[in-house]
Design a protein around this nucleic acid. Structure first.
Lengths: 141, 141
DNA sequence: TATAAATACGACTATTGTAATCGGATATAT
DNA sequence: ATATATCCGATTACAATAGTCGTATTTATA
């Protein structure tokens, strides 16, 4: 519980790798081997990150991926929201339940809804305030 | 992903309820009905919270549970760590993998271990700095 | 002292979400 | 042409979470 998914973990590893290879194209295969990540699994995530504008891809021989913007402009929150449908800390705060209206039985009179929203904002703020670049800096310390 | 478990969510609801009934014993049955929580599921959590010293229990007829300390001395972190074995934001930071040594393939040269530890500390700080009492205050705002 | 109402506790099942895999299509440098 | 890459949907495998069941124990009170 309260754990980042492998999808996100792997994405962070790969994005950090690309960041270190500034400009060069990195193939999914290369990264999967170096970072010990299942190739198919990583590929799928990279494709999503591409659609979300976080990485750019070049197809064909000698193709690969590269960051589409500087590492200090990519936040952990960007990565999480790109890969996860419902990054809410409790089920009732997810998009799905908002639409379905009755997902939470306690609904209107729920005594922890507002507090949970506040907690969630705090957690998300951490992710919004941490960039890929900072992550790599922290590694050196 | 990155979601509090139902176990924790229900526990927060129940503890908040007990906090509002200061001093009175609250039975698991009563709380499960009022808060729409499966009785067996809630009971189990309450028993764990009892062992961890967060609530006190009285057995037998007219028995029940009550907070063992003021609501402002119980943090969300206390509740989470009582109920969850491994509150780590990535698998490799869990107690289990520390012991088993090889749980993380990247192990020593992992480029995101330190950054993840820092992120985790920030998240945990939020939970450590939020008490049950504050949670209820937030609800009124 | 029998009974009903409560906690205590382990084992089990069901459901869901995550992780991983598979098969095939498309693009492109050489 | 071919090898190397991305692209993409479908499927399977696995693990974690959520929920249930059965039974034992405790205790107020009628």
């Amino acid at each position: 519980m309260f754990r980042l998914s492998k999808k996100v973990e792997y994405a962070i590893l790969a994005l950090q790798f690309m960041s270190s290879k500034q400009g060069e194209l990195c193939s999914a295969k290369e990264m999967s081997e170096i970072l010990s990540i299942p190739y198919e699994f990583l590929s799928k995530s990279l494709q999503i990150l591409m659609k979300k504008g976080i990485v750019e891809s070049v197809q064909g021989v000698r193709g690969g991926y590269q960051l589409s913007k500087p590492a200090d402009e990519i936040t952990i929150n960007d990565i999480i929201t790109a890969l996860e449908d419902n990054p809410s800390i409790v089920e009732c705060l997810s998009h799905a339940s908002k639409e379905e209206a009755l997902a939470c039985i306690r609904s209107e009179e729920c005594s922890i809804k507002n507090p949970m929203i506040k907690l969630q904002q705090q957690v998300h703020n951490i992710f919004k305030n941490t960039s890929l670049a900072e992550l790599s800096e922290n590694n050196l310390k």
